[in-house]
Design a binder for these strands. Sequence first.
DNA 1: TGTACATCAGTGAACGCGCGTTCACTGATGTAC
DNA 2: TGTACATCAGTGAACGCGCGTTCACTGATGTAC
Lengths: 257, 257
Amino acid sequence: MDPLDPTSTGAPADAPADTPAAQLGKRARNRLAVEADILRVAREHLATDGAAALSLRAVARDLGMVSSGIYRYVESRDELLTRLIVDSYWSLAAAVRSAHDTVPPDDLEARWDSVGRALRAWAINRPHDFALIYGSPVPDYEAPSERTEEPGTAVLVLLVALLDDVRAAGRLADPRWLGLVPARAETGVGAMLESPMFAATRLDAVDLTQGLAAWTLLLGAVTSEIFAQLGPVPDGEALFECLLAASRRCVIAPVGD
Amino acid sequence: MDPLDPTSTGAPADAPADTPAAQLGKRARNRLAVEADILRVAREHLATDGAAALSLRAVARDLGMVSSGIYRYVESRDELLTRLIVDSYWSLAAAVRSAHDTVPPDDLEARWDSVGRALRAWAINRPHDFALIYGSPVPDYEAPSERTEEPGTAVLVLLVALLDDVRAAGRLADPRWLGLVPARAETGVGAMLESPMFAATRLDAVDLTQGLAAWTLLLGAVTSEIFAQLGPVPDGEALFECLLAASRRCVIAPVGD
DNA sequence: TGTACATCAGTGAACGCGCGTTCACTGATGTAC
DNA sequence: TGTACATCAGTGAACGCGCGTTCACTGATGTAC
């Protein structure tokens, strides 16, 4: 299992946290193990059959458990889906953050690129988890926003901090390159700046729009590769590097300017 | 039904084409009507329950037909899915082309924008059809490429022609703006240029990469709006206009340059 | 024009399948005294 | 430390559901002579 992923390794938020497994009773230890097993097996099913076909019975069967037994651990099918989604968000965020944190903070381009490459690598390794969080919505299922909001924005929080560092360094790309009209950016996303996410920054609507353009291009590049939207591409990685560079230029001006 | 859509209006490719309905016998007329009904009802189900939940029994039921009766018109569930996909591609291509063709050919920016806006409008009107062709793949279903390839590339064909017109007018944006490295573009997409799609053009790998960057940004913008990937956006249309402008700038240089 | 035959549309029953969820139950683990 | 009780994990049967697909069939429409 992915060592960068804080939740895949066990303890969900409502379990006795910070307690070494050794000093738990048999029951508690077993529960943690089974809970982890359920998520693991469910993710395997996700990878082979997709989210719509995820079945509690099948997961129970794979664990050698009778189908009703799984209800000791999971409220319902939808609740399991929610856990998978939350788990995937955290896994992606951890992968991205860990890649980002290996880069010197003042190398802005390298920080952007590391985020982009980590996103792509994660998506290629776990295409169905990627589809779960960035693909078509699962029919007849609505994620409870109180559980998905925080993990779902974790990557964006990191990018906003990076964007603000770019601004502070005076390295923001000229928005006229992108043909941005400030008034339109203001009506488009101005109100988002009041979110607490931006409290510690000095970003304005145009900056944010540039960031969203870069992020949209980046996410679009990964999406089109994972979902094969462009048909067969001779060298996906090389194309991605080109698109990654393009997305970087939406935000960060080259040094010589 | 969408009047711009050549296939939604009836006659699939293997039906007696170009024959006025009036001079067909009762049987043939009825068959055309039922075939159209099936596609219509199937699309309704798609819109409410998603592709994974599409069920032949449910479609038959809605048509007042016994469940086995539908096999007179449809080979299998997968084959119906294929028809829906092909139909959606054609519908999108027709909408985009018709919007594009109302713009004067020498107004390159307006041509790009019309394509982008038509794509977005189509996706907003038919989000599940959009998800079907640009969202997560349907589990346990693989589209037969011999049926989807032509409709699936129809929009790209149009964009390639536009891109070549931009090149011919000497209006291609400077690829250095996007940080493109020619050698990397060549390995990434060079081999694609041998496809017949590019036979009538003089595009090189860098040009194509610019076009793909623009298309990726555009499609990403629509995808993120339809799938609500950015959370709540104050004014989706205004943001889209900003991203549309940005995508346009990836390809077309502003006049004053 | 009428008749005999071939084609087709739609029926109804059936097969075998998997699903989510509930419920009363047994036996093991934990806890309070 | 041992005992009585409470909690919990997992069982097995059942409910009611919808699905894709096949098959032999009836009756209507079309066609060749």
